[in-house]
Nucleic acid binder design. Sequence first.
RNA 1: GCGGGUGUGUUGAAACUGGUAGACAAGCAAGACUUAGGAUCUUGUGCCUAGCGCGUAAGGGUUCGAGUCCCUUCACCCGCACCA
Length: 903
Amino acid sequence: MEYNFKEIEKKWQAWWAENHTFKTETDPSKPKYYVLDMFPYPSGAGLHVGHPLGYIASDIYSRYKRLKGFNVLHPMGYDAFGLPAEQYAIQTGQHPAITTEQNIARYRQQMDRIGFSYDWSREVRTCDPKYYKWTQWAFLKMFNSWYNPETDKAEPIDTLIAKFKAEGRWDGLTEKEQSDLLMQYRIAYQGETAVNWCPKLGTVLANDEVKDGYSVRGGFPVEQKKMLQWQLRVSAYAERLLAGLDTIDWTDSLKEMQRNWIGKSQGAEMVFKVSNGSQEYDMTIFTTRADTIFGVTFMVLAPESEWVEKLTTPGQKEAVDAYLLQAKKKTERERIAETRKVTGVFSGSYAFNPLTGEKVPVWISEYVLAGYGTGAIMAVPAHDSRDYAFAKTFNLPIIPLIESCDISQESFDAKEGIMCNSGFLTGMSVKEAIPAAIDYIEEHGLGRRKINYRLRDAIFSRQRYWGEPFPIYYNNGIATAMPESALPLELPEVDKFLPTESGEPPLGRAKGWEYDGYPIEKSTMPGFAGSSAYYLRYMDPHNDEALVSREADEYWRDVDLYIGGTEHATGHLIYSRFWNKFLYDLGYVCEPEPFKKLINQGMIQGRSNFVYRIVNTNTFVSCGLKDNYETTEIHVLVNLVNNDRLDIEAFKAWMPEYHDAEFILENGEYICGWAVEKMSKSMFNVVNPDDICDRYGADTLRLYEMFLGPLEQSKPWDTKGIDGVHRFLRKFWGLFYDRDDFRVSDEAPSPAELKALHKLIAKEEFDIEHFSFNTTVSAFMIAVNELSDLKCCKRAILEPMTILLSPFAPHIAEELWHDLGHSESISYAKFPEYVAAYTVEDSFEYPVSFNGKLRFKITLSKSLTPKEVEAAVLADPNTAKYLQGGVARKVIVVPGKIVNVVC
RNA sequence: GCGGGUGUGUUGAAACUGGUAGACAAGCAAGACUUAGGAUCUUGUGCCUAGCGCGUAAGGGUUCGAGUCCCUUCACCCGCACCA
């Protein structure tokens, strides 16, 4: 019987579905293991061969853990709200729900062909009202909570009201005043803020949805605009988000990215007296270099700072206004493009150094950001490169504060050296001077220690249709929460998916978009809303009473292994951690961190192929000869090429214009050129997993994607070598079948056969635990080659081999498993029970070297002490040969490793 | 600029806490069986002046012994970027 993968795969996929093989139940008698993939946004293009890489890895690990006796939760769902479906709806009028439904169906079909072991009964879709009820619920909880700095956690807003009452700050306020007051504390709050506004999309975007001044989705220009927006007080969690990183098993680079994003910096706030000639104020600035206070030669304000108005003198008003206007007109993009250009204007006012009393000018410049610190800085040009550039441009004085530093060409930014020109700090090292300066400032009431974070609150409103509606209505302009009983607040129908004529979001078109006669909020929630807590919903997906029941949460707790792309490092992975910590504070979940271990799978790039047409002809020249002609490089559909050799007939049939093409060959073949590029339709390099399944089968696809290289590395898709993997599966099949005869026998295995099996077991367990799936596949190939040479067809060997292979190639394993006489799925096999009692001999090969040169090996018991090993080596007849009559000066024994004899 | 990472044959890549570098594949070459083969099987395949020689981006160090540890330099990739 031949290995007929098509039939086998179809048969078992249907069987798994029918028997609900992968359905998971909460089962406290077994240890749990939760393996999660980042759920996909179902785009119209379908899956290409790169998407399943992480899914295959997580599936292998899930199946492996199941064989090891764990109760594995391995669910899948769809991040189904999003811009592309809405854009498509605007263009075609087709409701995004329909587009999304179709795309999901296609994704599902493609995933099913690969044979994943998802428990589809737990599927979630973020656009399903039964699901987004809980997104809205969490929002209500955030609206009705505040962050208590004393307990360092979120608490119900009632505790804050009680506090205000006790302090006498509540009674007597109007309803509006009370609302405004609470708004400053709520975790989900409404506030005026500068946002990334994308006019083309008609909506605001989060920072991670903008790249280089263009929207990530669509690539439209983005500008800064001040708007009233819903926001989440993520910044309140900055310290805990930072500290939590030390408790989780993520890669260093990813943790570092999050640390940078949170951007903790320790320094001091300092108060400077400022005067515009007629009035004096106290202005607070933030600095990390309090030690450089004696080198302050000017101050700088952000153009958006509220100080600008107060400190602009009548004489400078015209110049300042002109500068502000010009700064405002610039888009974010232009600001970035002009990063190196120094601009600014003098305000007319002066500040007074709190330590020296010296009078320094106050300037306004774009290089100071309104959103960080206090939006105002003290400038120390000698020791800050930005201040230095500014001082040089506007001819401001530069005072060096560190002995013998050279500041003629550039500033000296390093925090090292001995202070000079610095009053009481002179003579100290910089490291001593920083705390000393802050201590002095605190003692004299000039300022205080302060920690600043770069992390900003998350903007939570989007002016578009295809997202979760806010369960908020406006009672005389006061934002009011709906009761939980009103959830889910379902997305209403609209006639068009565009903003209204008056510039309102699309929900402004919905008829009767009211609650109790009051208008409902018209913006919707952003993409990350639905993806922030989906891992919790999988634990208990059909619960109408709670996001997740206490029982389910206490059993499944957190995600043990999370696999997904690195592109979510500062978006989803921060928001999700924040969301989880918030629910943790209120007691709805029992783990402070949602994702214990995280692996970023690499991207699979496309490998494009080219043909070379000689200009003005229809003749194509093979790659190796192309330099002899003037040619045009043309992308060719990769399916027409095998190992860079063009299938000429298929190429001619591909497009009418190539019908009569002629070819200049080398060695009788047409060799194509190639390049690694992003996988995309326009480059004809998209490889569809369905095609691979047709040609080689899902098991080969799975094995090959793993064999391609380390999981975390990006690599181009290249079908070179897929035959080798396919051959391996056929060889494995051949151990069971000789032509049509199933030849597996119950004969006792030989030591050589057992050794081959157990070598594989040892390697496999170690490698899978380290996610080194490429070497695991290699180990399999070695074992099968060895058993093939031994002509082994014994049950005691092949049965455990089949179980071991099942995570990687589940279809063929299932088929052979049933051929071996089992009626249950191989997924229910308990691997340890099938491992024969075979212990690797308790001996070890010690390599023996002389003066570091390896000479021979000696086999000794592992349990010997170093002294005994030494004696055995010296007594060995080989030793005499290398000592050449001399004496060993020293014998170094590294237990379990090597013996080195120094002569 | 700052932070993280990588550098090994013709190619994808192995090498667990330092211990015979290049496993396993791909490619290439030769051979076998074949009417034929992009099928199957066998063998060979780091480099050269062929020594028991040289080789893991380059140079230096620690060690009996370094792809692995330390320092310097170079190249590439990723992330952040006027964050005071």
